[in-house]
Structures are given as C-alpha cells and as structure tokens.
Design a binder for these strands. Structure first.
Length: 307
DNA sequence: AAGGGTGCCAACCGCGTTTAG
DNA sequence: GCTAAACGCGGTTGGCACCCT
C-alpha cells in the first residue's frame, strides 16, 4: 500500500461534462443489449469516451426506464423528511423507500428545499445530518432542538433490538390497522425477504401511528424460531416477488386461522391495549410502502379494502 | 439592459466497502 | 488471507437559469 489509489480511468482520454443525446442513446442501446455487468469496461465496449463511473451515474440517475422525473409530491417530500430523521444522510437508503427517485435527486431536493424548510438559516455547504450538528449562532435553539430529535431517532434505531414498548415510538393513542387476508400473504412473503427487517424497522420508526413495534419484533422472532412452515410442506425460498401467484390464496404460513379468518394481526396487537382503529389512509400508506419495498406492482390492489 | 447574487441540479471526486483472483 | 480492481455512496462543485437592483 501507500502508493495511493489508482485513478478509475485516464482522465485525459475521457469526455467530461454534460451528456449529449447521442451518448445517451449509445449507452441505452448498449445496456439494453448487453446489460451492465462491468461498468469499467462498458464505455470501451459501447464506444463511449466516458469513464465507467460516469456511465453508471448517467444510467442510474437519468436513463434507467424506471426513473421518475418531475417535481416531488408533498407525500414524497414528507417521506424524505421522515426518513432523513431516521437515517440521516443515507441517501441511497432513503431512495430505496421512494421508487423511481434516485439518491442524487433526493439529496438535491433535501439540500435545496427541505433542509431550508426545516432549518431556515443553515448554510449551503453544510449538509445537515444526524452526525454533524452545525451550530449556527442565529439558529442554535432550532438546531439543538432538531439535532436532539434526529439523534434521539438515530439512537433508538441503533438500540432497536433492546427497545421496549415504552420506547418513544409508542404512544398512548396508537392506532393499529389490520390487514386483509391477501395482505397477510404478502406480509408472509415480506418475512422471507432478506431486507424486510431493515426496511420495515425504518418505516416503523417514522410512522409511529401505524404499527406497534414490539409486536412486529415478536412476529419476526417467532418467524425465526418456528420457521413458519409452508402449508405445502416445502421450505419456501426467498420468493421472487413478481413470480408470486396471487391467484391461489392459501393460509399464509405463520398466520393463525381463527373462525375462518387469519387473525395474526389481532394477536400482534392484543398485548397493546389501544383498540385497533380502521384508518384507510394509514392502511394505504402501509400497503404502498410494502408494495414499494417488495416491488409488488399490484400490492395495493390486493389491499383496497381495509377494514 | 447589464451586472451581480442566488438557486438549482447534473456531474465529478474521493473514500469506504465488496468482490474477484 | 491478501491485494487490487470495481462498485457504490455521500459530499462537493461547475455552470446555467432566473431574479433583483
């Protein structure tokens, strides 16, 4: 070591600056034909005078077919604010909660709009985060307040596994929404999803009225302990979301059937006294979230009826 | 109309992490 | 297990567009 990091490409031989339509077309065409298994060699193979990193960035941020363009909705902005409070400047993580939005785009929106809205006197260069708490003299009180909130959230996430029901995430008037049967099937698939715990935990911490965290933790624990046998007997691998067959509903393994109904949800919430309260907005939010995370395009369609 | 200031965003840079040999 | 290459991420910046004086 000690010789420093080798440059990713010969900067004298690559084009820099804005991409031309022709370059975009070349990149799109190449990726559609050959994919992007190796960004470093891609520009050479595609005939582009660009650095591989530049190609990757261009593709991810602008040329991907699933990139959503246009202004951010109020809901998206609120989500960014929520997730930023929980995750800090983890733009890619936040982006994973907002399908079609890129980390770069979210970062820009945060730095140009949302940060100003929340911290009106913060300077341009200091990206506000849960780690760094700039103390601008003129807004010290605001900063202290917001830093406290941010750090408290961050800490609670760090200590998530030790969290008790008395954690700040739980409030006396929480309302729980019971999903429909089809949604329980989806939940079961989520439980088999590698990232489920992380993404759900993050969501839970920012939507305090939706779920009781402790019951979900219990669920996950139970899931781990019992293995949740598939009714078909076969061990279910992590399911490819798109391949899920919605047409054959069967008892989602791990969910109890009571009086012909899957009643896990009531089992989940019964230790938490507040009466479950129907709330279609929350249900929609939850379904949308789950759908986004699992890329089940039609997830919300299965949850149109919400108690 | 011109010049300076500000906002915005696409793109770059460099570091940490992951992967392959 | 080690090393270098490649990838991915977050911070930063260049430059254009718009606004204000």
């Amino acid at each position: 070591m000690g010789k420093g990091r080798a440059p990713c490409c010969d900067k004298s031989k690559v084009k820099r600056g804005p991409w031309s339509p022709k370059e975009d077309l070349t990149l799109i065409t190449f990726i559609q034909k050959h994919g992007h298994h190796n960004w470093r060699s891609l520009p050479k193979l595609a005939g582009l005078m660009r650095c591989g990193k530049s190609c990757r960035l261009r593709w991810i941020n602008y040329l991907r077919p699933d990139v959503k363009r246009g202004n951010f909705s109020k809901e998206e902005e609120d989500a960014i604010i929520h997730f930023h409070q929980t995750l800090g400047n983890k733009w890619s993580k936040i982006a994973s909660f907002l399908p079609g939005r890129t980390d770069n785009e979210i970062k820009n929106v945060w730095n140009t709009h949302l940060k100003k809205r929340l911290f009106p006197n913060s300077s341009r260069s200091s990206s506000y985060s849960s780690i760094s708490c700039p103390h601008d003299r003129t807004t010290e009180a605001d900063h202290n307040k917001n830093c406290a909130i941010v750090q408290e959230k961050g800490n609670s996430r760090d200590n998530e596994s030790q969290d008790s029901p008395s954690s700040s995430r739980l409030h006396g008037n929480d309302m729980y929404t019971k999903p429909e049967v089809n949604e329980l099937h989806e939940i079961q698939l989520l439980l088999d999803h590698d990232d489920f715990y992380d993404i759900t935990s993050a969501f839970l911490q920012t939507t305090e009225t939706l779920f009781p965290v402790q019951p979900l933790d219990s669920l996950l624990q139970t899931h781990t302990l019992t293995g949740f046998h598939n009714t078909g007997g076969a061990t279910q691998e992590a399911t490819e979301p798109q391949s899920f067959d919605h047409s054959q509903p069967e008892i989602p393994y791990g969910f109890e059937e009571t009086n012909g109904e899957f009643d896990l949800w009531s089992q989940l919430v019964k230790s938490n006294s507040p009466t479950p309260s129907p709330n279609s907005e929350e249900c929609d939010e939850w379904l949308s979230f789950m759908g986004n995370q699992t890329y089940f395009d039609d997830f919300t369609l299965f949850g149109e009826v919400c108690l």
